[in-house]
Amino acid sequence: MLRSVAALVVDGMAPFEFGVVCEVFGVDRTDDGVPPFDFRVCAERPGEPVRTGVGVTLTPDRSLDDLVAADLVAVPACTIRPEYPPAVLDALQEATARGAAVLSVCSGGFLLGEAGLLDDRPCTVHWRYAEEFQRRFPKARVDADVLYVDDGNLITSAGTAAGIDASLHIVRRELGARIATLIARRMVVAPQREGGQRQFVEMPVPECTADSLQPVLLWMLETLTEEHTVAELADRAAMSERTFARRFVAETGTTPHRWLTTQRVLHARTLLEQSALSIDEIARLAGFGTPALLRHHFQRVIGVTPTDYRRSFSA
């Protein structure tokens, strides 16, 4: 049973991510039927101000001993640094050895990695830090595509909103869907986004230079419902097929077919969010033709079905 939650704060803490943990676990919602949490804000030196990254300070009142004794230790995002306080890392190790679950939000995962908690464990982090994270912790099994990863006593999440998803997931796992929904309703957020959902990294059109493919890419975006062959695209770019294919990968990082498919998925995503069109009509307008083809590619790129995505994000 989840009864006590300790939020770890260190210098350089990100206030919003800290606030996510406070909002889910630190607010008294017993009037709504949510069980109370023994919520603790813990630091190496309780009573001393901790600096944040936005020019304000926070003064925690609980020690690392209180953190070690908690059922769940939450590590919000903080400034990434070469080293972290040894006492903090020791406390994280002691808490997990004692049986606590550990949650990281965004760059808070770097503290878990530095404490050796991610060795041979599946985990995630914000996509922006994924390469650095993997270089620094080569034994960690990083999946930078997903919102959060639940590996039993280790729950890691990506950016800010994913921290909300992971926190509510823990509540759902430990206390049931009803309690998680009560908290989500008060927060006015979706009660559940599956962890396997993608982090939604866009594939932008490259900025125009003298030899850029931008005019061709823009034309492809304007004609999503049409079929495009490499021969046709190369002819439009006034290049040979081989040169065009090589240049396309160099400029976009992927092949013409995969780039076009992803742009169609992103357009379908916008229609799911902002319109009441049927799935059949969205499939047609996005260039997939059939709902089955839309579902296949949408789930591959986004990680959930179009129907599930609309349920969570439709205006």
Results as ranks from 00 to 15, higher is better:
S212N: 10
S157P: 05
D143H: 07
R141S: 06
P206T: 11
W219Q: 11
R193I: 15
V146Y: 03
Y148T: 04
L182S: 08
A231L: 09
E132Y: 02
A144D: 14
C123W: 01
R186C: 04
L118R: 02
V149L: 08
C208M: 11
A231G: 06
G113C: 08
Q134G: 11
A177D: 14
D150L: 05
L168M: 10
L154A: 03
W127E: 01
T156E: 04
T229N: 02
V205M: 04
R172Y: 07
D165R: 03
R128D: 11
G152N: 05
A144N: 08
L168T: 06
A115E: 05
M203D: 12
E207P: 00
E174L: 08
L221D: 12
Q214V: 04
V189P: 01
D145F: 10
L117N: 02
S157E: 05
Q134H: 07
E131G: 02
E226I: 00
I183K: 01
P206C: 12
A180M: 06
R128K: 12
R136W: 07
E131M: 04
F200C: 07
D151M: 04
L118G: 01
S167A: 15
L221G: 01
R185W: 03
D150F: 05
V189C: 11
P138F: 11
E232R: 13
V146M: 07
R193H: 12
G196N: 09
R141Q: 14
V205T: 15
G152D: 05
G176Q: 09
R178L: 09
R193W: 04
K139E: 14
V149I: 15
V189L: 08
Q134A: 13
P191Q: 07
D143R: 12
R128A: 13
W127Y: 14
E227Y: 10
T160W: 00
E226K: 14
D120R: 13
A190M: 11
P138W: 11
L147E: 07
Q197R: 14
A190S: 15
R178A: 14
L233E: 01
V201A: 14
A140C: 09
A140F: 05
L217R: 02
R136Q: 07
E207A: 13
H169S: 13
